[in-house]
Design a protein around this nucleic acid. Structure first.
Lengths: 242, 242
DNA sequence: GGGAATATTCCC
DNA sequence: GGGAATATTCCC
């Protein structure tokens, strides 16, 4: 029956998919949010007809095909049975059952039409397998993202922990200095010191508030507090002059 | 042909799946790492035969079935054509083609055996659809996880930033205090102060080292440093007595 | 070299 | 949008 079919994916489909995968072209050609269809936003510029005095502004179509005619591009889409729709804002919307952002493996099922109509029946099993492969790709990508986030999170926890250590010890230094000063310094110096205390206390309160609002995930804060508490062997409280 | 098949999923399968989904039971019944099979680690306790003087320690089987006999549980697994294997460490391993952690929708294809052998042929399409649904579930769950992690990470970055602010301002206070002291205090007090300086410098160096080692993800540190730098309008350097 | 599929152009 | 001619590629 359909044993004559090409093995690979049509060049036209690959190039078009490639275009859609190029962030720099988002202002001209872009997937819909859900990735089920795509838009061509400015056919003129997309086809590279915009001329600025002596040279073309962009080089889109000819970068991907051997021409710079929007009509030819349309003709191809048509041969592959894409459904075109003209949107109110002037964009062209194109859609195909097997042409989706998250399902590159489905491309193999997009067939060029030769004579009249093409046979609508496909090897359903083969299509399912393509879908499965695409989904597996998605899962793999997400897992990689997760792994990277985890690594970064470890770094962040470490950084936070050290920052907290530093602040606790600084506080402790302040404490000792204060003890000395309370005996030795004159009244004027004490006033200045009190001002600094207020400032410090304000910061500490800010931080406490932040902790409270993180009720969804108190783990990090918990970790930092306990961890450092042990090491410094000192209450991370603020001392009060009185 | 196979039009006689049950509509829903067998209660036994659902309950067993549920058990495996219960973290508190991980010491008794748990999926393998890959989720392709599961283990029962202590048949005796799992079946709720362990008695501590006057009462049963756990209440596993009877929470899910109307009995507390491991043999009955085994019989069910057997009727559903699970493959049993006894591991060296005493655990029981069970496996079924369509009973997998990440493929709950496949459960519909686990059939109870009525007479001799069950028919091995399945509606392949239906199975593919189940697999697709399961994978979609996985993808959706992971996306939600990713989103939550991203939110948390934002919070953490904010926390770190505030902590760093605090430490920089404390350092600056120290600086000012030192300037006063260098005029007013006697020699003995200065010595003590120098000691504190050393301690603080040690911490700061430690922190600097940490930053260096984070070459894989220097973004956070970068953010913190620049952000705070602007706000305090002061070099976060250590001052030296000389 | 040449059949056949795909790509591009032309035109109604 | 789609038929048809031509151009190009692929492959035996």
């Amino acid at each position: 029956m359909s044993s004559k079919r090409r093995v690979g994916i049509a060049h036209f489909l690959l190039r078009t998919f490639e275009m859609l995968d190029t962030p720099k072209l988002k202002h001209l050609i872009e997937w819909s949010t859900c990735g089920e269809m795509f838009y061509i936003k400015n056919a003129r510029e997309f086809a590279n007809k915009v001329q600025s005095r002596f040279k073309f502004i962009s080089q889109v179509l000819p970068q991907y095909f051997r021409h710079r005619n929007f009509q030819s591009f349309l003709r191809q889409l048509n041969m592959y049975n894409f459904v075109k729709k003209r949107l109110k804002n002037g964009w062209n919307q194109f859609q195909h059952k097997y042409f989706k952002r998250e399902a590159k493996n489905l491309l193999i099922h997009v067939h060029r039409r030769s004579n009249g109509q093409q046979s609508d029946e496909e090897e359903q099993t083969s299509i399912f397998q393509s879908l499965l492969l695409d989904q597996q790709d998605s899962i793999k990508k997400q897992q990689e993202q997760l792994q990277q986030i985890k690594y970064l999170q470890n770094d962040i926890v470490l950084t936070s922990s050290l920052l907290y250590q530093q602040s606790v010890i600084l506080q402790s230094n302040f404490q000792r200095l204060k003890n000395v000063l309370s005996f030795r310094l004159n009244q004027k110096l004490l006033y200045q010191y009190i001002e600094e205390q207020k400032q410090e206390k304000f910061l500490f309160n800010t931080f406490s508030l932040l902790n409270k609002s993180q009720s969804d995930s108190p783990k990090l804060t918990q970790t930092i507090l306990t961890q450092n508490h042990k090491e410094t062997d000192q209450e991370p409280q603020l001392f009060v002059l009185s």
